[in-house]
Computed example of a mutant assay.
Amino acid sequence: MNIGIIGAGAMAQTLAYHINRAGHDVMLSNSRGPESLVSIGQALKCRTGTVLQAAQFGDIVALAIPLWAFSAIDPAPFENKIVLDLLNYFPHRDGKIEILDRGETTTSEMVAKHFVGAKLIKAFNAITVDDLYRDPRPRGHQIRRALPIAGDDKTAKEQASLFINDVGFDVVDVGPLADGWKIERFRPAYCVAMDKETLFRTLADTSRGTRVPDGYWLKHRPITLV
């Protein structure tokens, strides 16, 4: 499978590392162009390209950029693509977004409105870059971390789930993008390491009124990976 990644920061590079290990081809991209990614591409043994090239290359395309940056991307090349949305809302970085502050929509619903025609899946947003590096485990491992996803296209979620399993994680389906608030910041499932059963129960118990402090994941780790 070909995986295009829009972005080349720590999260994008860590994801590319595991994609390579899983036997898939990956292309990193950024707004500055492939000439700025030569050393990274050599280190990770992956392809590099423009945002357009990465979008065209990928059977699945991952958005690993700040939330504020997505609206500057031309949505046309992403039509009919499975697009993984890793974006999270940080007001100090992205600026205040009133409709998110009021809970009127989710980050993924915002992104989906821009990438019209894409099959958007919320994925890999609820894990820190350090955990993404160290937590993947092969299928059948006795203790395996689960990651939540949300999306409106059943087939796209199935394909995304297979890919995430290849990378090293079990998957729990949160539901449609409209339910993606359950895995955003200040929610119990955000960036907390859980196995599949624990994550499922946590999501089932999460209501609109269920909130946790920022940094909650630093002190709560229901599973220890061995």
Rank of each mutant, 00 (worst) to 15 (best):
I6M: 03
M11G: 02
A12M: 10
A12H: 09
L15V: 13
A16G: 08
H24F: 00
R32G: 12
P34V: 04
S36V: 00
S36C: 04
L37P: 02
K45G: 14
C46T: 15
R47G: 01
T48W: 03
G49R: 05
G49V: 01
L52T: 07
F57A: 03
D59N: 05
V61M: 01
A64L: 05
P66H: 01
L67R: 15
S71W: 07
A72Q: 01
D74L: 11
P75D: 01
P77G: 07
P77D: 01
N80C: 09
K81Y: 02
K81I: 08
V83P: 00
V83F: 09
D85S: 00
Y89K: 09
P91D: 09
R93F: 08
I99C: 10
L100H: 07
G103M: 13
T106S: 07
T107C: 11
S108A: 11
E109F: 05
V111S: 05
A112K: 00
K113E: 07
A118L: 02
A123I: 10
F124M: 03
D130Q: 15
L132V: 06
Y133W: 14
Y133A: 10
D135M: 12
P136Q: 08
H141P: 03
Q142H: 14
Q142S: 14
L147V: 13
L147K: 06
L147P: 12
P148L: 10
T155K: 00
T155I: 15
T155V: 15
K157I: 08
K157F: 09
E158L: 13
Q159C: 04
A160L: 02
I164P: 06
V167C: 10
F169G: 06
D170E: 12
D170A: 07
V172K: 00
D173R: 08
V174W: 15
G175Q: 04
P176D: 02
Y190N: 03
V192Y: 02
A193I: 05
D195Y: 08
D195P: 00
D195E: 03
E197F: 03
T198P: 02
F200I: 01
S207L: 04
V212P: 10
L218I: 09
L218R: 15
R221H: 12
I223R: 06
T224W: 04
L225N: 09
